[in-house]
Design a protein around this nucleic acid. Sequence first.
DNA 1: TAGCAGTAGAACGAATCATTCCGTTCTGTT
DNA 2: AACAGAACGGAATGATTCGTTCTACTGCTA
Lengths: 213, 213
Amino acid sequence: MSGRRAQAARNDEVILQSARAVFVADPSAPIAAVAEHAGVGISALYRRYPSKEELLRRLCLDGLKRYNAEAEAALAALTGGGDPWTAFEGFLRGLTDADTHSLTQNLAGTFTPTDDHMRESARAEELNTALFDAVKRAGVIRPDIELNDLTMLLEQQTAIKIGSPERISELRHRYLTLTLDALRAGPAPATPLPGSAPTARELGERWIPRHKS
Amino acid sequence: MSGRRAQAARNDEVILQSARAVFVADPSAPIAAVAEHAGVGISALYRRYPSKEELLRRLCLDGLKRYNAEAEAALAALTGGGDPWTAFEGFLRGLTDADTHSLTQNLAGTFTPTDDHMRESARAEELNTALFDAVKRAGVIRPDIELNDLTMLLEQQTAIKIGSPERISELRHRYLTLTLDALRAGPAPATPLPGSAPTARELGERWIPRHKS
DNA sequence: TAGCAGTAGAACGAATCATTCCGTTCTGTT
DNA sequence: AACAGAACGGAATGATTCGTTCTACTGCTA
C-alpha cells in the first residue's frame, strides 16, 4: 500500500502526534497550529475530525486509556509479587513519560465529556484505589499521604515547560525523584537527582514577549 | 478626606487587588474581568493605567519587589545568627503565601519588561545566590540541589488551582511541606502534612466545560 | 482516462477583547 | 447657588483571532 493511500495513513499518525504535542504545550492553541506542526493543510484535519472539540476528546480519551494501561501494569507487577516500591515508582515514571496529566487534567474543561470518558475515568478511579491501597498496605509510603494527593503531585509537573520536550522530561524526572524520596516511608534514601538543574539562560528566556512565535 | 476623593482612593486599592486575583488565576484574562471583579467600570481602570500591558507590568514589578523583600528578610535572619533551616523554610513559606511566582514567572512574556524589571530581577538574583550559598554552607540542604532548582520547585506550585484562594494556599503549603522534607539534608523528619488532601469532588469539578463562567 | 479520495490554503463569519467615547453623577470651590 | 471638572459606568468601535467551510488542484486507482 503506497502512494496517496500511504500518505493518508502517515498523516493519520503525524496529525495525532502533532495535536498531542501542540495541545500539551498549550491547551488553547488554535487548530491551525496543529496543521502547521504536522506540515499538512487544515482540511487534512477536518477530514479526520469533525471539529476541534472532537479532536480534543480523542486526545483526552487516549490519555485516559494510557493512564489505565500504566495502572494495570503496575497493579499486575504488584499482585504478581513484585517489590511494591519498585512497582509504584515505575508507575509514576511511566505516567511522567507519557505525560498523561497534560492530556487529561489540562484538557479537561475544554470539551464536554462523553460516556467513554466517564467510563475510562471510573475505571481509572478503581485502579487508582486498588493500586494505592496495595502500596499503602505494603507500608512503603508515608502514612499521611492520601490517594488524591498523587493526582495533585503529578499535576504539578505540568507547570514545568522549558525548552524541548526532552528537556522537559528530564526536569520532570529530576523533581519526581525528589518527590519520591519525600513520599517513601522510613529513612530517606536521598537518591541522587538525575539530569541537571535549569540554567540561568533557560530561566531568563521566558521574559521575552511572545505575541507571535 | 471623603466622598468622591475617598472612593477613588479605595478604588486604587480594590483595582490592584482584583487585578492580582484575576491575572494570577488566569494570566490571559480580559481586562473587563478585572473591572467586574472589582465592581467598577472599565473606565476606572483606564483612568489609572494607560493600557493592559502597563497594569501587568505593575503587577509583575510588585511581585518582584515582594520577592526581594522576602529574600532580604530571610537573609537578615540568617546573617543575624538565626537557625538556617528555619530561615529557609520561612522564606519559602512567605513566597508561597505571597504567590510571587504566579506574579512573576506566569506573567513574564505577556509584556515587554522595563528597566525597573531588569533592576529588580538582577537584585533578586543577587539575593538568591547569597541566600542559597549561606544555606548550602550551613549544610542543611541536600547537596545535589542547585539554586535554580528552587525556582522550578516553586513554579510547580502555580499548577495547583482548585477552589478558593484559601484552599489553594492550603494545598500549596501541604505539598511545600513534602518538598521541604525532601530538600532537607540528613535523616528525614517526616513533618506531618498540613491541610487535607483534595476530595474526589474537587478533582471531578474540573471536567465540566467552562466556556462562560 | 475518468473519477474520486485526499489535500492545501484562502475566504468567511462569529466571537473576543483592548481601547475609546459619551453621558451622568457628584464635590469642592467660588 | 451654580459651575468646572474629576471620576465613573458602560455602550460603541475597530482590530484581531480562530473555528469552520469552500474552492481548486493533484495524482492514484480502477
